[in-house]
Write a protein that binds this DNA or RNA. Sequence first.
DNA 1: CGAAAATTTGACATGACTCAACTGGAGTGG
DNA 2: CCACTCCAGTTGAGTCATGTCAAATTTTCG
Lengths: 193, 193
Amino acid sequence: MWEGILQNIGKYITLTEDEIAYFKSVVQFKKLRKRQYLVQEGEVVKYESYVIKGCLRAYQVTEKGQEHVVQFAIEDWWIGDLYSFLTGTPATLNIDCLEDCELLQITKESLEELYIKVPKFERMFRILFQNAFVHSQKRLLSTIATSAQEHYTEFIKKYPNIDQRVPNHQIASYLGITAESLSRIRAQLVSKK
Amino acid sequence: MWEGILQNIGKYITLTEDEIAYFKSVVQFKKLRKRQYLVQEGEVVKYESYVIKGCLRAYQVTEKGQEHVVQFAIEDWWIGDLYSFLTGTPATLNIDCLEDCELLQITKESLEELYIKVPKFERMFRILFQNAFVHSQKRLLSTIATSAQEHYTEFIKKYPNIDQRVPNHQIASYLGITAESLSRIRAQLVSKK
DNA sequence: CGAAAATTTGACATGACTCAACTGGAGTGG
DNA sequence: CCACTCCAGTTGAGTCATGTCAAATTTTCG
């Protein structure tokens, strides 16, 4: 249960035995079944979650009932409604499991304490957020600057592992197009070859 | 020259006199005229820049020559091609001044050293990147989930200060629409009132 | 096996784009 | 200080990519 996350943390910072023990003491293990919610719109989010195993999606629902996927998360990713988590305001996102999931969760209070007691974590999350920001900017640019077809081909190149685990209509939702459009794009790509 | 940035830093962390002195010693002052480049596509970016005064835009140019604005920056914002800065790869962005600008710049080496010598800065940038990521996600959602008109009205609500300093066709580019479309949207909004 | 979900396909609608022309204001140089 | 150019902004006409709605087909999973 701990190998994955500790190895992942090890990519960014080096911890002592004590620090590892302390870290272990502040995170909680959680199992969720496929289709279960991790977060529902309207609730105040208490945890950020690290994915040990499984696959989740975070999405927002518009007034007209359309779902827009903001993020997928698989093994070794963090997921949550960060804005709600940070500000204590009600979540605007829903997050649910596309597969049975195993998570490690940390509360805001524990995380703040972790930053103080083991400042290396401040470094790790600085790097994680920095990378997340860069990727988010790149995604934005693809959304704005490229055709739906290019955008889709970029996506499957970049996330082949996610592509194979997630239904197409949810990928469409992530890309900001309809399931029908994605279906037609895929048909075109096949016929081109 | 220093009040603005020190006050801004003070929102996130508290520094001693020595730390302030050290910080001052690692950043460089730079003035640029309107229309001058801060970063050009292809060069390796050496600095992240804090805006003391002025207004800049970061944009990418596609093969077909279309410009897409990724970010505007005004007083108290940081700007740069973060990906190039972090990885040492050639910049994909261009950044230029929309007004005469005064900047403070820091190199990657100095920033890394600053993180080590004054870990509080790790905290500050963790928070800055965290916020930048949250905003980027929200922007992405607006781009994907709302009509061009809603997206524009959200933009002017959120950034009235930028709106007034930047020509409309560049706002259009930021929103991912053409200048013509924005012009028509604005006409509609006026007629509605 | 059967119900529900996912995907595909067709017909049609529409929002945004492209290209082109025109207007008005800002900045520049004689 | 005026004439001229340049650029931002607007408007119109036609096109195209993607959306919508509906139905048929395939896949998934209890």
